[in-house]
């Protein structure tokens, strides 16, 4: 049994160490004895949504973002279906914005997104840049605890850490839940104190840094969801996460003390 991870447009959307997220998913799966296959899909290629377990869409510069929105529209229906079927998807920054209704430029012009999720983004004059600490939403935290093989063996993380760099302000529609509340930083829009989005098995966020190496609990949740969807009823061995947690807590203590 192998886990297939698909990296969408790695040649276009690969800012801010995004590949660290892929490395982390692959390594944490491999360390538990499940090999992974990495598919890289470029412009003009048709992703095989039926045979993938985790889809990753990263962030890109404005020019690159425009190049690929058009390309993605071509297989928007298949992606929408896969999401409805529970495909595990991690979308960061530009990838997160793309899934929404539109991106509104400062001159009021609206660039349509894929329209799969009920969220929209409005460009702001000021970029949001800096370290971010997020207090995880209770439901999400409970879900992560459930994945841990032996709950209580180590102090579980209840925050997400990362670095944001975006000028778009994203707003969520009624059906979408944020990943958590901002302790440090701006998050989705700097106004409502929320960061990220969860819908079915889709996770959207502005956090890079990259996100998964320092948030092993989130990486493991993605893996567990993908395994469960594959019908694998397999106990989830815990890993030696000392350094992951050390890197996580060091930055929490520094930028969000107390």
């Amino acid at each position: 049994m192998k886990l297939t991870i698909c990296h969408l447009y790695p040649d276009l959307l690969d800012l801010y160490g995004d590949r660290g997220n892929i490395l982390t998913l692959a390594a944490r799966s491999r360390w538990r004895g499940i090999e992974t296959v990495l598919q890289k899909i470029s412009l003009g290629e048709q992703p095989d949504y039926e045979n993938m377990d985790i889809l990753f869409i990263g962030g890109g510069s404005d020019r690159e973002q425009r190049l690929l929105t058009e390309d993605l529209q071509k297989h928007e229906r298949e992606l929408r279906q896969a999401i409805a079927d529970g495909l595990v998807l991690l979308a960061i920054c530009g990838g997160y914005q793309l899934l929404g209704q539109y991106y509104q430029l400062t001159d009021g012009q609206r660039i349509p997104g894929l329209g799969i999720l009920d969220l929209w983004t409005i460009a702001a004059e000021q970029r949001c840049i800096g370290n971010v600490v997020v207090r995880l939403a209770e439901t999400l935290r409970a879900e992560m605890l459930e994945q841990a093989a032996a709950p209580g063996t180590a102090a579980p993380l209840d925050t997400l850490v990362g670095f944001e760099n975006h000028s778009g302000q994203t707003y969520l529609g009624d059906g979408l839940r944020p990943l958590g509340k901002i302790l440090t930083g701006h998050g989705n829009n700097g106004a409502d104190g929320c960061e990220g989005m969860r819908y079915k098995n889709v996770f959207g966020t502005y956090l890079h840094g990259p996100l998964l190496p320092k948030n092993p609990h989130l990486a493991d949740l993605l893996l567990a969801l993908a395994w469960r969807r594959k019908g694998l009823d397999w106990e989830f061995p815990s890993l030696d996460d000392r350094w992951e947690k050390l890197a996580h807590t060091t930055i929490v203590k520094r930028v969000a003390p107390g």
Binding site: G17, G20, N131, G209
Partner: peptide, 9 residues
Amino acid sequence: GRDISWLWD
């Protein structure tokens, strides 16, 4: 540079 994500590149 405040952002150290470049280490992963």
